[in-house]
Amino acid sequence: MNYERYYVCDLLNGEGVRVTLFVTGCPHACPGCHNPSTWDRKAGRPFTDEVRERLLDLCATHDGLSLSGGDPLHPANREAVGELCRLFRARYPDKDIWLWTGYRHEEVAELDVLRFVDVLVDGRYRRELPTSKPWRGSDNQRLIRLRR
């Protein structure tokens, strides 16, 4: 898996102060996407064990971890994202994980990684459906609380 960037003090991608990782690789290519530079899964930098550990360490003083992209549930990202979520949950059982995906929940509900995710924002971005709902880019997207 590759990633484009991460934010170490994010107030926009979920509740509280968060560490947010933007992975690369997105099969949806939504017109008007805010992050088209993340579509190519080979773009960005390799997500190494060292990067993963740095992110996990940064989460110690934050409310949670947010995963965006690209699409964290792109087939090429699922294994590394799953491992990150598993390690986060083991280290921080009282903190939460938010994940944005262009897939509908019904399409990915059986993925093992979702057992670690607290909040899923699902659905492709549709610029013709603007919204004022928090944490969503378009009105079709759903905020689904999977845990707690």
Rank of each mutant, 00 (worst) to 15 (best):
H74F: 15
A60D: 14
L120F: 02
C85S: 13
E110S: 11
W98S: 08
N140I: 02
G123C: 06
W100M: 08
L21Q: 00
V23Q: 04
E128Q: 13
R136K: 09
F22Y: 14
L12T: 12
E53P: 00
H105G: 05
P130D: 07
F88N: 04
V19P: 01
H28M: 14
N35C: 11
V81M: 15
K95T: 14
A80T: 08
K133M: 09
L21M: 06
V119L: 13
N13M: 04
T48Y: 10
I97P: 03
L84D: 00
T38D: 09
L55I: 04
Y103A: 08
L58H: 06
E50K: 10
T48F: 10
L56C: 06
R126W: 04
F22L: 06
R45E: 10
A76P: 07
P31L: 13
R142L: 06
W135N: 04
R115M: 10
V117D: 04
G102F: 05
S138Q: 07
T131W: 06
C59P: 03
F47G: 05
L143N: 03
G25D: 04
G123I: 05
G70A: 11
D96Q: 11
L55K: 02
L58S: 01
R41S: 10
R5N: 12
L67C: 10
E128F: 10
D49I: 02
E106T: 14
R5H: 15
H105V: 02
T20E: 03
V117S: 03
V8E: 15
L21C: 07
D96A: 07
A43Y: 08
G123K: 02
V23P: 01
D94Q: 11
R147V: 05
Y103S: 10
Y92T: 12
F22H: 03
V8I: 14
